[in-house]
């Protein structure tokens, strides 16, 4: 009964938010529409963070890496291949997926805090490369003058902020819907099972690293697609769009939104980004301080504590003297053996 009410209320809120997003471009000015479009793109990256952190149990600070790969692939390659939006989204998603696939050997075997550190390092590495590889990326100056995009073959190019916003909204809604469907499949079920108890999942015969690789690559593709939306929304990109601050805020937003909830992640990430933009306006110069505080809050707010999100790895080698025993007797509640003690 209560669950039913909560579900209805949630559905109503979702419908309201969606309706608000649809009418927004006719209510707000051009500048705000552009900001909204960018925020939506970041919200989509937040969804990819939620898929990894909440559903698969791999907390990540590195989704800016495939996000950047998607954005640059779209700006550099996509615009040369075609000015059709669908093509550019596909190219960007592919680039994000490829980058994620390349980092699978680093990320998938790691657990807990180590994942955070490795993904953080990957994100920083990508930003550094973007800043150095001037001939392709324009270095820290970034890329401007990107050719405008048309959503589909035969449609006009997107010339106004309103049109670009609506395009972003449609793509984000489609991809979020796809993620929601994906989570209802066997794949989603196995990801949640692995988050709950990885050792048990292995003991049932499942190839856990395969699921995790699949989740990582899927999340990379989603973040990559979001990158192409950023290009459309801003018509300018630079390495500053993909810094550590963005990753940290996305993780924070996802945690606030409820790590395992896709809709919550979208709203949470968008909210946090909006608050940041506002805060940096009111508190100029204190940005690092605010970020530091936010990051500490993120680590503490993760529901079970970051290092417990995933249990110990399946195969323990005795000499490593693992700190936790997967099969430690919970309680010795059975020491009496009446028949033999007589």
């Amino acid at each position: 009964m209560r669950d039913e009410l909560i579900r209805r209320a949630r559905g109503a809120v979702a419908a309201l938010v969606l309706a608000g997003l649809v009418v927004a471009p006719w209510v707000v000015d051009d500048y705000t529409a552009a900001i909204l479009a960018r925020t939506l793109a970041l919200g989509l990256v937040g969804v990819s963070v939620a898929l990894l952190t909440g559903v698969a149990g791999m907390p990540t600070l590195g989704q800016t890496a495939p996000y950047a790969a998607g954005a640059y692939a779209c700006a550099v390659l996509g615009s040369q291949i075609s000015d059709v939006g669908v093509v550019q989204v596909a190219v960007a998603a592919g680039a994000g997926a490829v980058l994620a696939a390349l980092t699978v050997p680093l990320v998938v075997p790691a657990r807990g805090l180590i994942v955070l550190m490795i993904t953080l390092a990957i994100g920083e590495l990508v930003v550094t490369v973007l800043g150095r590889w001037r001939s392709v990326t324009g270095g820290t100056d970034g890329l401007a003058g990107i050719t405008p995009v048309r959503p589909f073959w035969g449609l006009p190019v997107l010339a106004t902020d309103q049109a670009r916003y609506l395009y972003t909204l449609v793509v984000v809604a489609t991809l979020v819907g796809a993620v929601l469907l994906l989570l209802r499949t066997r794949f989603g079920l196995l990801l949640r099972a692995g988050r709950d108890d990885e050792t048990r999942l292995r003991a049932s015969g499942h190839r856990v690293p395969l699921h995790l690789s699949g989740a990582h690559i899927t999340a990379g593709a989603i973040a990559g697609a979001a990158g192409s939306l950023l290009v459309v929304a801003q018509q300018y990109i630079s390495p500053a769009d993909f810094g550590f601050d963005t990753s940290a805020l996305l993780l924070l937003g996802v945690v606030i939104g409820g790590t395992a909830s896709v809709g919550g992640a979208l709203v949470g990430a968008a909210l946090v980004i909006a608050v940041r933009d506002w805060l940096f306006g009111v508190l100029p110069g204190h940005a690092p301080l605010v970020l530091g505080a936010l990051f500490v809050a993120t680590v503490y707010l993760l529901p079970t504590g970051v290092n417990r999100v995933r249990g110990p790895r399946g195969r323990l080698r005795p000499p490593a003297a693992p700190p936790s025993r997967p099969d430690a007797p919970a309680a010795r509640d059975h020491v009496t053996v009446p028949e033999l003690r007589a």
Binding site: L189, R195, R202, G314, D327
Partner: peptide
Amino acid sequence: GPAARARRGINRIHQRPAVFATLTATDN
């Protein structure tokens, strides 16, 4: 590893019951 052995037919229960806490009994 444990997964490959399970696929060959070795299944087990653990001394401390190990189940997927957020999944329903059926989904487990």
